[in-house]
Amino acid sequence: MNKELVDKIKNNHDYQELVSKRSSFAIKLTVAILVVYFTFILTIAFNPSALGIPLAEGSVTTIGIPIGMAIIVFAFILTGIYTKRANGEFDALNNKIKNSIKED
C-alpha cells in the first residue's frame, strides 16, 4: 500500500465512519463480556456462598447454576450480535470504501 493510497483511505469519510463505529461497538461488547465474567469470577473469589443460595425454598438447585448457564448463552449471543452487524452494516461500508478506491 503506497503513501498516496494510505492518505486517500485515511481521509475517506466512509473509512473514518467504519473505524469509529466498529471500534466503539467492539469495545462496548468486550467490556460487556469482561464485566459479566469478572463479576462472576470475583463473586466466586470473595463471596462464593452468594452463588450457593437456593433458587426456591427447599430446592437444591442454586442460583449459581442458571447464572453459569446464562453466561455461556450470553457469550454466544454477543458473538451473534457482533457478527450480524459486522457482516451487514460494516461490510457494506467497507465495500463502499473498496469501490471508491477502484473508481480511479
Binding site: I27, T30, I41, Y82, T83
Partner: peptide, 24 residues
C-alpha cells in the same frame, strides 16, 4: 459439581474477545 462449570465458563469467554478484537 459446580466447580466444573466455573472452568468451562473460563474456557468459553475468550471466544467473544477473539471475535471482537483478533479475528478480523
Amino acid at each position: 459439581g459446580y466447580d466444573g462449570l466455573i472452568y468451562s465458563i473460563g474456557f468459553l469467554v475468550g471466544w467473544p474477545i477473539i471475535l471482537f478484537m483478533i479475528a478480523e
